[in-house]
Amino acid sequence: MPRFGMVIDTLKCVGCMDCVVACQTENDVPFGHCRDWIVTETRGEFPNLSLEIRSERCNHCDNPPCVTCCPTGASHVEGFGKTVQVTAEKCIGCKACLAACPYGARFVHPDGYADKCTFCLHRVKEGKDPACVSVCPTHCMVFGDLDDPKSAVSQLLKSRKHHTILPEAGTKPRVFYLT
């Protein structure tokens, strides 16, 4: 069984937000909400500057605090790809998972349940990449099986410097950023 993850090349990413729009249309994310977003981090002082741009989303953590805190099992680790998913029909809308996520990756859908990035499992099951990955004009995102040493994601992690977000949270995030 694969363990899906995402590798994002911050050197290529220009922060155009195409991934955000593609996610919104693909998944009918209600207007005013987003499952992925762009963070820019500028360091230094004029004119000695550096900039990191990241397309962020649910990290589908190996150790997901949102799943741990869920009182109903609505937030769960899906067998397929070991991804973190929400079953809307089980969610009571207690919002504990929103508070528990160090990444702010979740929101309350206007219909009342917790919502977030699904890694576009419905697309992945059809053999496609997630919408954000497949739309990106810079080809900065790669999706695949982290447990398969031959996969593109594993190869990139082997050959390039990378980091995750807030690894100190102990969540073992599975979205990696190449630098």
Binding site: T68, C70, P71, T72, G73, A88, I92, G112, Y113
Partner: peptide, 26 residues
């Protein structure tokens, strides 16, 4: 009143999640 998905509140008693303090609390 705080719950966002009120109609589904019964779901909390359809499961026991041993790692969830909220489940214990319920």
């Amino acid at each position: 009143l705080d719950l966002a998905h009120k109609l589904y509140v019964y779901r909390v008693y359809m499961a026991f999640e041993p790692h969830s303090p909220m489940s214990w609390g319920s």
